[in-house]
Design a protein around this nucleic acid. Structure first.
Ligand SMILES: [Mn+2]
Ligand SMILES: [Mn+2]
Ligand SMILES: [Zn+2]
Ligand SMILES: [Zn+2]
Lengths: 139, 139
DNA sequence: ATATAGTTTAGAATTATTATAAAGTATGAA
DNA sequence: TTCATACTTTATAATAATTCTAAACTATAT
């Protein structure tokens, strides 16, 4: 029960989510980080089990992640394979993606400038653009 | 047995794939088009069943699509949901993506120009960039 | 024609995800 | 403090996309 947790308790309460110990533990893992975090449900489950020795039901991990997504604390990303990834950076931003390691790295919006933008299909408007830079090990 | 099929027969043979009637039918559906085609396995299966009255085993549809991908005739795309999409445009290119209709539209590489490019993580090199422009119905 | 390797197929298995419903818990009111 | 209640967790079942398996079938070379 540290200050950090108290902040999460408040944040969850004001979101209309009860601060259960499962949710607080997941908050701690996801949001007590310097850099943004990209993870699959499987990643998160393994971190809970192995690094934190917590056995939270898989259904609860899914429920929690989806609840956080719905409240706007996580963004879902589909990239590279059949699993969903989640991103603690919920802003519109770009990514480096290494197909070998399947690693995602953030690029902030202001680091990329798209000069020439195509005109959208008729009757449609452009809501945003996200770039994926494929990267690989330098030889 | 038209000219088009004869071309597919040759193409398959030179790829080391036997021109079976299942593969030729799928070639006909996928590659006899003006515009590039984005489809899921489910889409293709339904086109086969409903539009062409062909009952090709689901395993064969998967096998064929993956064989074509391996030979470089299709590109796999992961976007928007948990299903894979395949793209008859195998070049590096960009897309419009409508989240409502889940429709993908091609944008050729020369219609987009990325002015400012971020520097890759150390030890990594950039292999390419693909942009997804999210679009929606104009109000 | 025949042999052989490649292909198709139905069905089982696997994997990611979602649904169900019973047991447990946070919270506000009495 | 109870207590009632709605919310949450959980094990388990169900679903959906995909892959595996092994037997039947077929294209191709000889
Ligand atoms: Mn999802
Ligand atoms: Mn795939
Ligand atoms: Zn990100
Ligand atoms: Zn495309």
């Amino acid at each position: 029960m540290n200050k950090i947790n108290i902040n999460f308790i408040a944040k969850l309460r004001t979101s209309g989510l009860r601060p259960t110990k499962q949710r607080l533990k997941i908050c701690d893992i996801l949001f007590n980080r310097e850099k943004t975090f990209h993870f699959s449900i499987n990643d998160l489950t393994k971190i809970l089990e192995i690094e934190h020795n917590e056995k939270i039901s898989l259904a609860t991990v899914y429920n929690t992640v989806h609840a956080f997504k719905k409240k706007g604390y996580l963004k879902e990303i589909h990239i590279g394979n059949e699993m969903s990834y989640f991103d603690t950076n919920t802003s519109s931003h770009h990514h480096f993606y290494d197909e070998q390691t399947k690693e995602l790295t953030d690029i902030s919006s202001n680091e990329v400038e798209i000069k020439k933008i195509p005109s959208p299909p008729s009757g449609k408007k452009i809501d945003g653009a996200e770039v994926i830079f494929k990267i690989s090990k330098k030889i």
